[in-house]
Amino acid sequence: MGASSGALGHYLMDHFTLEDGGGLLPALRSARREPVGRPAGYIVPKYVNADARFRDKNFLRGYYLAGDSQQELYGHAFGLRGFGRALRRQVSREIPYRFGIYAQGECLPRYENYVKLDPGKTDAWGVPVLHISASYGENEHAMARAMHTRLSEILAAVKVEEMQAPSEKLSLFGKNIHECGTARMGDDPKKSVVNRFNQVHDAKTVLVTDGACFVTQGCYEPTLTIMAVTVRAAEHLADEYRRGNL
């Protein structure tokens, strides 16, 4: 069902990230615990290729930057020498502030990235398991190079100590658990799996309302968009039912 276009299962996407960038903020080293142990998260929204001033012709689409900073709880204890009460006093009195940063980039939809039912393997309940074939392409690798440069520039500008360089390696496909695509939305039943109201072209009473319907995924987390298309699909379904069209 839904396979008539040949698109079912294809155009799988998942965001990729460059992680692990960070270091200590020397100006904030403290001997006092902050009154509330609140982590501070931040996000720098996508601006590359979203604004003519920040055009990068080496890749399509873009990425955002994000991270957090907080007083280290006790992780620095592992790097300190010594034992006993003296060590514990040092852990409590020399509290470093850690700054972390990463970037998350958009994955382009490519036909070559797909899922299908494995012809041979089944799970514990006898259901065929998914066979997943996916990798990042030239565009993602080009974007990752730009992301790495920008992350390194920021860390240098912040002047962190004990800097941990951001990874140059793209995160594993699927690691970010933002899988989208495989039942793409479109008006043309020959090129897409569901229509604009998430109804499968081949069976209008079957709706696919998760991230599978995404044609592109942007660089942000997909949940709110999934909720929005689901609400729209449900409202349309209710309207159609009231009109007697189902």
Binding site: R33, P35, V36, G37, R38, P39, L73, Y74, A77, F78, F83, R88, V91, S92
Partner: peptide
């Protein structure tokens, strides 16, 4: 040493010594 540090600072006494109040919003 690594295990002792980990164990201590995740114990009630260790968290108290750190004056850790947990995440709050």
């Amino acid at each position: 040493r690594h295990r002792a540090i980990e164990g201590f600072y995740t114990s009630e006494a260790g968290l108290k010594e750190l004056d850790y109040k947990g995440h709050s919003f």
